[in-house]
Every structure is written in structure tokens, then in C-alpha cells.
């Protein structure tokens, strides 16, 4: 087994262990929140549950990247890099990208937990969420400025894919709802759709450039 194979195997084991841990915490966290909801009377609809799951995905990714960047020796085992030095080389871009993901994830979490689904008043939820989105856009812009041409190309391609996916999925859903074939999307579904489809678009764009292959 070559050094590279060993590194990739170690990375796979670490990622699998972390995913398992996150899954267990998520399961019990969700269960506890569900129990609390029954006691407090919060109305957890499927839209809210899916929005929370997507928000947690953003927050978990942001947290992992932040810790990986802060401790490059750990980061080289969980991020798609060759070694700790590569994290140092991309620090500014990666850090700001993680801040953006975190801000956006928090924004979705807060808007999903607006009353009656959660304890936050709708106005406060909206204001905090809007601030999170604006802050996320700021960090994303800073990250973009620190990107090299490949990352910029991937960003642009992801934006094109995201537009197409949003048009097809959200637009298609709206069309079907208008024709009385489906129930119309709830406003939160539209929001979650943007988040999930942007993530999918980014994976497609990165995958086409071979950037999802473990290194």
C-alpha cells in the first residue's frame, strides 16, 4: 500500500467515524427536540424538519472546515487536501467559505424555528435570518476574492447549475401546483430548496473538475 493509499484510507475511516458520530448526535438531538415540541406545543411540520436537516448539514460542514483549518494536522484527515500545508496555502479562501456556510446554515435554522414551529418570534427570526444571509454573502465574496482561477471557474459553473436546478425543481413544482397536480410548496420549502440545490450544484461543478476524488 502506497503512502497515498494509506492517507486516503485514513481519511475515509476518519470521515466515516465523524459521520457516524454526527448521525448519532443528530438522531438523539432530533428526538429530544421532538419530545420538547410535544411538551411545548411547537408544530414541527415536514417542511420544518427538512429545513432543519439541511441547516444542520451546512453547520456541520462549516464546523468541520473551521476545525480542520484551525488544526491543519486534523484537517488533513478530513478535508480533501494532500497535507496540512495545503490547508495553510488555502487558509483565507477556506476559512471565509466556512464562515459563509455557517452564516447561511444559521440563517436557515433560525427561520425554520420561527413560531409556531419553534420558540423564536417571526420578526426576530426574519431579522436574524436576513442578517445571516447578508453576512454569508459577504464572507462568500471575500472567499471568492481569495480563490484562484479553478475555484472561480467552479463557483461560476456551480451558479449556472444552481440556476438550472432551481428553475427545474422549484419552477417545476410551482408549475405542477398551479396545474393542481401537487400541493404548492410552502415558503420554507422554497428556501430549503435554494439551499439544497445550491449544495447539489456545487457538488456537480466540483465533481466535473475531479475535485470530489479523495486525495
Amino acid at each position: 500500500m502506497t503512502d497515498k493509499d494509506q492517507r486516503i484510507s485514513r481519511k475515509l475511516v476518519t470521515i466515516a467515524a465523524l459521520s457516524l458520530g454526527a448521525g448519532v448526535i443528530g438522531y438523539f438531538g432530533g428526538y429530544a427536540f421532538g419530545e420538547t415540541s410535544v411538551e411545548t406545543g411547537y408544530e414541527l411540520s415536514m417542511s420544518v424538519i427538512i429545513a432543519l436537516a439541511v441547516a444542520v448539514m451546512y453547520l456541520t460542514t462549516a464546523g468541520l472546515v473551521l476545525v480542520g483549518t484551525a488544526v491543519p494536522k486534523f484537517g488533513e484527515n478530513v478535508l480533501n487536501v494532500e497535507d496540512a500545508e495545503e490547508i495553510e496555502e488555502m487558509r483565507a479562501m477556506v476559512l471565509n467559505s466556512a464562515f459563509a456556510l455557517g452564516s447561511w446554515g444559521a440563517a436557515l435554522l433560525v427561520i425554520a424555528l420561527a413560531e409556531p414551529a419553534g420558540p423564536i418570534s417571526p420578526l426576530h427570526s426574519f431579522l436574524v435570518s436576513a442578517a445571516g444571509i447578508v453576512l454569508g454573502c459577504y464572507f462568500a465574496a471575500v472567499s471568492y476574492r481569495h480563490s484562484d482561477e479553478l475555484m472561480m471557474a467552479v463557483n461560476r459553473e456551480a451558479a449556472v447549475w444552481a440556476y438550472g436546478l432551481v428553475f427545474c425543481v422549484i419552477g417545476g413544482w410551482a408549475m405542477a401546483a398551479h396545474a393542481d397536480l401537487l400541493a404548492p410548496p410552502a415558503p420554507l420549502d422554497v428556501m430549503t430548496g435554494f439551499y439544497a440545490l445550491v449544495l447539489l450544484a456545487t457538488c456537480i461543478a466540483a465533481g466535473r473538475r475531479g475535485m470530489l476524488k479523495l486525495r
Binding site: V81, E82, E86, E89, M90, D148, E149, L150, M151, A153, R208, R209, G210, M211, R215
Partner: peptide
């Protein structure tokens, strides 16, 4: 090479593997 050209290693990797 990435350092000399002022780009990321991923860029060099993507060019070498004909992905970019």
C-alpha cells in the same frame, strides 16, 4: 509548481488530469 505559478495545487492537479 502551484507555488511558482501562484495557483492552488488543485488547479495543477485538475490541469494535469485534463479536468480543467
Amino acid at each position: 509548481l502551484a507555488r511558482r505559478l501562484g495557483v492552488s495545487r488543485q488547479t495543477i492537479n485538475a490541469v494535469e488530469t485534463d479536468k480543467y
